[in-house]
């Protein structure tokens, strides 16, 4: 156990040099024009992601996390700044980036195995081969036995795992997830967190997780990027020096509690700023 902690620590203390990073996000700003004027959703955000790292972005609701997610995924244009993968600037959905969405995104007309095989089907892989690959990833997310079910026959948590398996089957260099478990209850969320940890430790999958759940972020991450409320800037980057491999048991440890408390105090400031902001606009918008 001690050896694991040590080896992990030595890895975590290495700072990413520019050549080391698998993905760089540089000076990203995104503005929307709304009826009330220009809204800056993301303001000058920069960070780098190391290969094999699990990085979480946490921030209060409405701080621009999904906007950032869509920019990095190449689904949204019209931003300032640059996102690059292995030195290559992205201009649209990139083959190295796989996305798991917050919303339910399985195809209801496809069985589990056909859902997971979808990206392989697009690339023209032969049927027998892609079914075999799909089964592998279905097993990885713990859904073996459900291969021939339709999404409507599964629970919400199982459907999110199908989406995850589907994106893993795409074999992206970087896995991008936007609050994939937001719609689930706390217990399911923790257990799915276990699954994600297992998979991440097995595949050494570079992962960028967007979340507003502190427990989830600390449980899973190597580093956490805390964002401010509108405009969405980076407030702080927290290194999580907790031993790996981890399980959901870690949430009851003392060190875990300290991280949670630290991030919560950062976030509380931002969240309350967001709330008073909302009140102000409400009062301004509807004078009595």
């Amino acid at each position: 156990m001690a050896a694991i902690v040590q080896s992990f620590d030595s890895k975590a203390s290495a700072t990413p040099s520019s050549s080391d990073a698998i993905m760089r996000v540089e000076d990203i700003s995104m503005r929307f024009s709304t009826p009330d004027g220009v809204l800056t959703a993301v303001d000058d955000v920069s960070f780098a992601v190391r290969p094999g790292e699990f990085l979480s972005v946490i921030g209060p609701s409405g701080c621009g996390k999904s906007t950032l997610f869509n920019v990095i995924g190449g689904l949204l244009g019209g931003y300032e700044g640059r996102v690059s993968v292995a030195g290559e600037t992205i201009t649209g959905p990139h083959a190295s980036i796989g996305m798991v969405f917050q919303e339910e995104s399985t195809f209801p007309w496809r069985t589990v195995v056909d859902n997971v095989a979808f990206p392989l089907e697009l690339s023209g892989m032969a049927k027998a081969q892609r079914v075999e690959r799909a089964r592998h990833f279905i097993k990885l997310v713990g859904l073996d036995g459900f291969e021939n079910r339709y999404p409507s026959e599964l629970s919400g948590g199982m459907r999110q795992r199908v989406s995850m398996a589907r994106t893993l089957a795409f074999e992206p260099k970087i896995l991008l997830m936007d609050e994939p478990f937001a719609a689930l209850d706390e217990q399911t969320r923790l257990l799915l967190g276990d699954k994600v940890l297992q998979i991440q430790q097995q595949l050494k999958q570079t992962t960028l997780l967007i979340t507003h759940n502190i427990t989830e972020a600390v449980q899973l991450s190597d580093r956490i990027l805390v964002m401010t409320y509108r405009p969405g800037k980076i407030k702080r980057i927290v290194d999580i020096d907790l031993p790996r491999p981890r399980t959901s048991d870690i949430v009851s440890s003392e060190a875990f509690g300290r991280y949670v408390a630290q991030i919560w105090s950062d976030l509380r400031e931002e969240a309350s700023r967001g709330m008073s902001d909302d009140e102000k606009t409400r009062q301004g918008g509807h004078p009595r």
């Binding site: 959905p93 195809f107 697009l122 994106t167 795409f170």
Partner: peptide
Amino acid sequence: VLISVGRTYRANAWQMMTKIYIP
């Protein structure tokens, strides 16, 4: 979101039509 899924897997126009829009 289903259209976004197709785009992130880089489906071409024909694949988008036959494998996402029509089904």
